[in-house]
Design a binder for these strands. Structure first.
Lengths: 107, 107
DNA sequence: AAAACCATGTGAGGTATTCTAACAAACTTA
DNA sequence: TAAGTTTGTTAGAATACCTCACATGGTTTT
């Protein structure tokens, strides 16, 4: 996993990076738009990808889009992405079956 | 600046990422091997690059190298890097002067 | 219009995390 | 032996984060 996706940023830093309030950030989580990890003690940890997503969410909110609409959009995009992933993996699987290398040591 | 260099990670997360103790992380700062930023309240903030550097430092310490030796190495490497940067920029400057585009709108 | 929902601010009380400073200990170097 | 290195630990204070609840002004639904 790349730096962009590692959940290492606390909410205060996210607040400073995005300009959002902590209240807003927590609220968007409550509305299932964002999914931070937690420390053992319960503090939220976000990734840079989360930060970018939060900015996108904030822009849509500013445009008057409601959180449940944003959530639907995200689920649609997610589903589409999953379909593409499945197709890509199936094709790769077929190629491997026909021409690919076996598992295990090859050298 | 890339994600790798943004100072956003608190010391507890750095501890978990590196396996070092907070004591060690602060001590290496005291020995001028690492330079976190601070929040307004005084909490340290590290980058992913810092995390990688800390791991390298820890490896050298394990090999019995002392912090002041590591610091010298780092200063040497830094100086060398600066020299290379200067040369590269000078050459680029010459190329621009001879063949480069003027500043300002070009289209 | 009343009721319900949305998005956000704020405050209280509690827990988690981080800070500095100091002392100790084991080890290495001078 | 004296001095320096590295790390652990402890203490007390400050900062940061947590949840929950109530308030408010706007919008949608009934």
């Amino acid at each position: 996993m790349s730096y962009k996706d590692k959940k290492v940023i606390t909410i205060g830093v996210v607040r400073d990076l995005t300009g959002l309030s902590e209240r807003q950030i927590r609220y968007y989580e409550e509305r299932k738009l964002i999914f931070p990890e937690r420390t053992p003690g319960g503090s939220r940890k976000y990734s840079f990808a989360d930060v970018e997503l939060l900015v996108e969410i904030a822009n849509k909110i500013e445009d008057g889009v409601q959180t449940h609409e944003i959530r639907k959009e995200m689920l649609r995009a997610q589903k589409k992405q999953n379909q593409e992933d499945v197709r890509r993996k199936m094709i790769q699987g077929q190629l491997n079956a026909q021409f690919g290398l076996r598992k295990g040591p090859t050298s």
